[in-house]
Design a binder for these strands. Sequence first.
DNA 1: CACTGAGTTGACATA
DNA 2: TTATGTCAACTCAGT
Length: 528
Amino acid sequence: IVPTVSSPACFALHPQVFIMAHVCIHWFRKGLRLHDNPALMAALRDCKELYPLFILDPYLYDQNRAGINRLRFLISSLQDLDCSLRKLNSRLFVVRGKPEEVLPKLFTKWNVTKLTYEYDTEPYSRSRDKNVTMLAEEQRIQVSYKISHTLYDIDRIIEENNGKPPLTYNRLRDIVKALGSPKKPIPAPTVEDMKNIAPFSEKHKPEYGIPSLEELGLDTSSLAEEIFPGGEQEALRRLDAYMQRTGWVCSFEKPNTSPNSLSPSTTVLSPYMTFGCLSARTFWWRLAEVYQGVSHSDPPVSLHGQLLWREFFYTASVGIPNFNKMTGNPACTQVDWDENQEYLAAWREARTGFPFIDAIMTQLRQEGWIHHLARHAVACFLTRGDLWISWEEGQKVFEKLLLDGDWALNAGNWQWLSASTFFHQFFRVYSPVAFGKKTDKNGDYIKKYLPILKKFPPQYIYEPWKAPRSVQQAAGCIVGKDYPKSIIEHEVISKKNIQRMKQAYARRPSGSTESPTKKQGNFVYFIC
DNA sequence: CACTGAGTTGACATA
DNA sequence: TTATGTCAACTCAGT
């Protein structure tokens, strides 16, 4: 006789054969996939009933925080996940609300005994998960989490670097070299793995469905075509397609890819990584297979290098307090950014009068993805290059509009581009005119996203205000009327800004370059 | 402590 | 066409 229900009597009578058959919630947050999902596999162990759950948390998916494109990506990802779960005789349960309020109710309603989830390093997530774990334990629910969003255990990287996050990429490389290769990904669960779990009951059918965008209160009338559909299946399809191009993979050098090609010059796997539709470790090991036995590019510019950049910023985001802010962020240079609502709105709404900048911001709004170097160009323009507006403002816009709006990567890259943290050669300024010309002399990219300029000759397409009146008339676009005049004079303002940056650096506390043990105060936070 | 080399992805002039 | 040096000059991390 093998008891299948938990009771102290059973345990006392049959200690050897006792099996605790759990009712388990696997809580999906990021990690919207079945492959390489160790927490999900942990959920299946000794489980008789499984509730794969996603909570639409108003804090994370508020419309000011998540734009419609990113919400669409999320909904597609959830639909795909549900579809995959149904092939395993399961399904996805979706609820709305604050996890700390929603979960205790479900624990009771479903008689839950175990909760599993993937570890998440974001400050909001960590505090949320701490609260939820406390609430779960109050209801005597076993809680188990696994690390699978990043290649490594981020805390181990910091530990290995004496309690501080590496501030340079090479330092991070040395650390992860010492830690060895990332773990191999584990396969997705199979029907066999699910054989002891009761198929989901039809009684739940009308409840817990995936809401449509309309049901979330969004106006979808002006929504553009879905170029990058969300979901694990699409992620794996996309990964396969790129991994087949072995020559391209092996010669990949990020700085040599184009920010303004008409179709993406990089993989666009980032949104899938952000939501965890694709495992970083799966990506890493697929690349390792392609690299095997042939010559290939290396970090920092290679595709492996890109995954290590992700790890770099994740590590910084865990080790540096107030990572998404300037104030209270001890690694960040304190800069006297201007408050200029007009400039900020012009940048955000693609009406700076610099076609390269405005085209990029248009692509961002329409498609939710722009090339990494395009992000450099507009980020430099908003901050230290031209408009002298805080990187935090740009961060908010990107977070909302990017499909791959990732908390750690977004904050880290904005600090990098504004020469606030990590990158310090502030005298290297991107030109809103010259930079794009290197890879798109004719301005085809500009014409695609700003059709009003499509008749401008290449000579003037990057600086339409320089075109003689007759040329503007022939192009059917008068600068100042049909397309904005440039809001600033780059040659003048960028030189002024370099000097302002120099002054901000001069005000940096002198102790910030000293070793953590030497001076008290400055680096204490790294150890906490 | 001073010093040095390196730093994913600048622009521009020159060879 | 592509490579190199200059411009002005930063920090980090290792020696």
